[in-house]
Amino acid sequence: MIEISGVSQVFQTSGRQSHLALSNISLTIQDGAFVSILGPSGCGKSTLLYIVGGFVAPSQGTTRVKGKAITGPGPDRGPVFQEFALFPWKSVLGNVMYGPRQQGVSSAEAEAQSRQLIEMVGLKGFEHFYPKELSGGMKQRVALARTLAYHPAVLLMDEPFGALDAHTRTRLQNDLLNIWERDRKTVLFVTHSVEEAVFLSDKVVVMTRSPGRIKRIIDIDLPRPRRRAELLLDPHYQKYVVDIEGMIDDTSEDELHP
């Protein structure tokens, strides 16, 4: 379980001003849940994810994972960044093996596991390619495999498919769902796509425009396993998408009367 309570984040900007990026965020995420954070650009979605990851310390409030206060990054929470952040001097295999090797898994075993993961994310045959030789979608697959390789209980994904073309994006969404349905990790997934959030999640957290507050939390009551083709035709799915889109649009009015 991830507990975020009363978290606020103030940034010092270059003009000696302070900028409130997150305001009093409280959120509880159950183990094994797929939770999406949705909100306009600049509302603090990434910042919230970084705080849970332990990469950024909040100005106020506390965060806990499995009851333990978060004081820094750890292998229990695996990030997948929008920028991929692969190690460019390592091959695909080298990148994926990096985490397990660091965790003390033997070289042979780490390699075997990593090859399996690389196959799972659809990159068999590319083991010895360097990141610069891969397309954006392939890099994101490697980034996902690299994080899955050290078995974090929680996946923290920051607009992982944001930079990809529609086709690649759809395929990766399906792949992610398959992986998740198999081993039910807790996923905190940042996106600005309403369809993506509804398609993937158990819960969608809608945030307000800056300073980021939680506006609504919507339970997505759609059956699993979810198949894209069926879901797109499902009126319940369509209603969720339309409703949530509406919430994002009138965010600014709502801010006046919280």
Binding site: G53, G72, P73, P75, P79, E83, P88, W89, R146, Y150
Partner: peptide
């Protein structure tokens, strides 16, 4: 983000210097 990825895998500050900052 590369250093953060390393930190999440459990690399200490010294290891990040030697194994991430140096090669990159």
């Amino acid at each position: 983000k590369m250093l953060w990825s390393g930190a999440a895998m459990g690399l200490s500050a010294g290891q990040r210097m030697l194994r991430i900052v140096l090669p990159s």
